Simulated scan of single mutants.
Amino acid sequence: MNEKEGDLLPRNDTHRRIIHLDMDAFYASVETRDNPRLAKKALIVGRDPRETNGHGVVTTANYVARKYGVHSAMPTMKALRLIPRDQIVFVTPNFPKYRAVSAEIHQLMHEITDQVQSISLDEAYLDVTENKLGIKSALQLAVRLQTKIRQEIGLNSSFGVTYNKFLAKMGSEYSKPFGRTIILPSEAKGFLAKQEIAQFHGIGPKTQEKLHKMGIYTGGDLQKTPVRTLLKQFNKMGYLMAEHANGIDLSRVVADDERNRKSIGIERTYEPSIFSEQTALTNMRNYCARLEEEMRERGFYANTVVIKVRNLDFVTVTKRRKLSQATNDKNELYASAKDLFVTISSGYLNEGIRLLGVTVTDFSRTDYAQIDLFSGN
């Protein structure tokens, strides 16, 4: 990628210290911990297909079963054909137990920091740039957490330590099981260049096939591909791939308690005041772009947009609109905010706008706490 192409990407931010913790074959490991006789067996967490008329899928499998080619989401009947009958063991999932163990693990995470973003029962990001223990080394904190999980809960985990979420997740998956990977800013692009595109989170089989047709097989190939080419072929996803291939991910760790917020808003007091409609609308457009980023990080979709305007006499008005369909798209948010603003703009612009704000509320959401029945990591 030449210098001009590189200018299309945002400036990287390497100041944060992020840990991605991922439990190793979580459900299967919990079952083995509670019944050590299963340790040498090919353990499948899933209903025995001989008892379900051949129906069902593998929820997860231990590493013995994986040596036979078994993986999550595989039909249990196929797993039964791959593994010798005297080696295979099926255990019906026990989600209340898995949730209880997950709560114990999360308690250990919160001993380090409250900046914990849960992805599922067995996976989370931690921002330890500032932490409760006052330890500067993220690697030291990650080893401490991994060790405590092993000693106090009896389970193995893997972690990635680096400066952003995307790389941290790649790191935790790099050397499983019981893996420890640290990726320094100076090493990121070299590390990514060696990875197959299948290892890039978010690049599914269909996208991989299209990339292969373009001669792109590795992160290094992505790094060499012009950003404009990726944009043309994949739109926003192409830009995201270009960012990730170059070690850039500006999304922040969104703590679990933040995800329960009822609304997200941005407002600003202006000095001098705003008298131009174009200036006001430009600011609102920028607000909506930032709100889009915030909601997408949380998996939120807003059903209501609210604007707030205050003049120099501190007279404040709020206007709200119920949307026809929940959205987290900045353009749709802005269209509604603009429509609301023009109904009141003339009077307030004449007097000068001291404060301007946009809020999104009444959320629908993708459930980040939903158990991923097909997660085998």
Results as ranks from 00 to 15, higher is better:
residue 145 L to M: 05
residue 148 K to M: 13
residue 122 D to S: 04
residue 141 L to N: 06
residue 141 L to G: 02
residue 132 K to D: 06
residue 131 N to S: 02
residue 125 Y to C: 02
residue 123 E to S: 11
residue 129 T to D: 13
residue 132 K to G: 09
residue 155 L to T: 09
residue 123 E to Q: 10
residue 153 I to Q: 05
residue 156 N to C: 13
residue 134 G to Q: 08
residue 161 V to R: 04
residue 151 Q to T: 12
residue 147 T to V: 04
residue 151 Q to C: 10
residue 139 L to R: 08
residue 150 R to M: 12
residue 132 K to L: 15
residue 132 K to F: 12
residue 141 L to I: 14
residue 161 V to L: 01
residue 161 V to S: 02
residue 127 D to W: 08
residue 125 Y to K: 06
residue 155 L to Y: 09
residue 144 R to S: 14
residue 156 N to Y: 09
residue 133 L to W: 09
residue 147 T to H: 13
residue 123 E to F: 06
residue 146 Q to A: 12
residue 160 G to Y: 08
residue 133 L to C: 12
residue 132 K to S: 12
residue 126 L to Y: 05
residue 124 A to D: 07
residue 124 A to K: 07
residue 138 A to D: 01
residue 147 T to R: 15
residue 138 A to M: 01
residue 122 D to W: 05
residue 145 L to D: 04
residue 151 Q to K: 15
residue 126 L to W: 10
residue 133 L to G: 13
residue 145 L to T: 00
residue 157 S to L: 05
residue 160 G to Q: 06
residue 131 N to F: 05
residue 135 I to G: 09
residue 134 G to H: 08
residue 155 L to E: 09
residue 161 V to C: 00
residue 141 L to V: 11
residue 148 K to A: 14
residue 159 F to L: 06
residue 151 Q to A: 14
residue 154 G to H: 00
residue 122 D to C: 05
residue 148 K to S: 14
residue 162 T to L: 11
residue 156 N to G: 15
residue 127 D to E: 09
residue 137 S to W: 05
residue 126 L to M: 13
residue 158 S to F: 11
residue 129 T to E: 12
residue 136 K to Q: 12
residue 123 E to K: 11
residue 136 K to D: 14
residue 132 K to W: 08
residue 153 I to H: 05
residue 155 L to D: 08
residue 154 G to T: 05
residue 160 G to M: 06
residue 149 I to K: 05
residue 142 A to I: 02
residue 125 Y to Q: 04
residue 156 N to M: 10
residue 142 A to R: 00
residue 122 D to F: 01
residue 162 T to A: 13
residue 129 T to W: 11
residue 157 S to C: 15
residue 144 R to E: 09
residue 136 K to T: 15
